[in-house]
Amino acid sequence: MEGGQEGLYASNLAKKLAAAPADEMPPLMETAALKPKLFRALFDTFHGDTVTKAKLRQRASDLNVHPEKLELAVDTYIATLLTADLAAVDDDRVTHKSAAHINAQESSETEPNNNDTGGLLPDTNGTSPQVDIPLLDDTPHSSRARAQVNISISIDSTMDSEKLQKQLELLKKYGAI
């Protein structure tokens, strides 16, 4: 998304993703997944490596992710990489593809990246949970503009109820629900 107080609109990358045929999707998904500064920094640190989620949380903390949002940031990062086929998960271990093996191409377009910390990209069953919760603690709350937030949550019996509870508490804290 781009824009500001005057309104929001789809970025050029979002438009390309919406219109691309299936065979052109992988490099666009990789580009989208690595667009947020936080996700790019995490991937640049661990590409080609297998690390634990704890190691990802530690690095995210080093990148100034708010301590209360570390779990959400790492879970969102992993879900995004899985969607873009940039990683595989085995229990608590995340195996990142090597940067040499990805198709991501740097966009020649100039797109703002302000506090872009990554929402969830559509998952494999086509649902798109979109939650705009700032993950980085680098801007005073008073300067943030209010935006309308659309939330779609799919709940099934395999979900971890404690994680769901924490996420709902964060949504309430930020006035999203």
Rank of each mutant, 00 (worst) to 15 (best):
Val89Gly: 03
Gln130Thr: 00
Ser61Lys: 09
Thr76Ile: 02
Gly118Tyr: 01
Thr50Ser: 15
Pro21Leu: 06
Ala60Cys: 01
His101Val: 14
Leu42Gly: 00
Ser143His: 13
Pro27Tyr: 04
Met29Ile: 00
Ala14Asn: 09
Asp23Thr: 15
Thr45Val: 05
Arg59Cys: 08
His141Arg: 13
Ser143Ile: 12
Thr139Asn: 11
Gln130Ser: 08
Glu71Cys: 03
Asn113Ile: 10
Val89Ile: 10
Asp23Glu: 12
Leu13Lys: 02
Ser108Cys: 08
Glu111Met: 08
Lys55Met: 13
Val131Ser: 08
Phe43Arg: 00
Ser142Ile: 13
Glu109Ser: 15
Ile155Met: 07
Asp138Ala: 15
Ala100Asp: 13
Lys35Glu: 05
Asp116Ser: 15
Ser128Phe: 12
Pro26Glu: 01
Val65Tyr: 00
Ile102Ala: 04
Ala54Lys: 06
Ala145Thr: 13
Ala79Tyr: 10
Thr50Phe: 04
Gln130Glu: 03
Leu34Glu: 02
Ala73Leu: 02
Ala18Tyr: 08
Ala79Leu: 06
Val65Lys: 04
Lys35Tyr: 09
Leu70His: 02
Ile102Tyr: 05
Ala145Pro: 15
Arg59Thr: 08
Leu28Val: 00
Asp137His: 08
Val131Gly: 04
Gln148Met: 14
His47Phe: 06
Thr117Pro: 11
Leu136Trp: 05
Arg57Asn: 12
Glu30Ile: 01
Leu120Cys: 10
Ile151Cys: 07
Ala99Lys: 13
Pro67Ile: 02
Pro129Arg: 13
Val149Asp: 12
Val74Phe: 00
Ala79Ser: 12
Phe39Gly: 05
Val51Pro: 00
Lys97Ile: 05
Asp91Asn: 14
Leu81Thr: 03
Arg146Thr: 15
Pro140Cys: 11
Val149His: 10
Lys55Cys: 04
Asn103Asp: 12
Leu42Trp: 02
Asp116Lys: 07
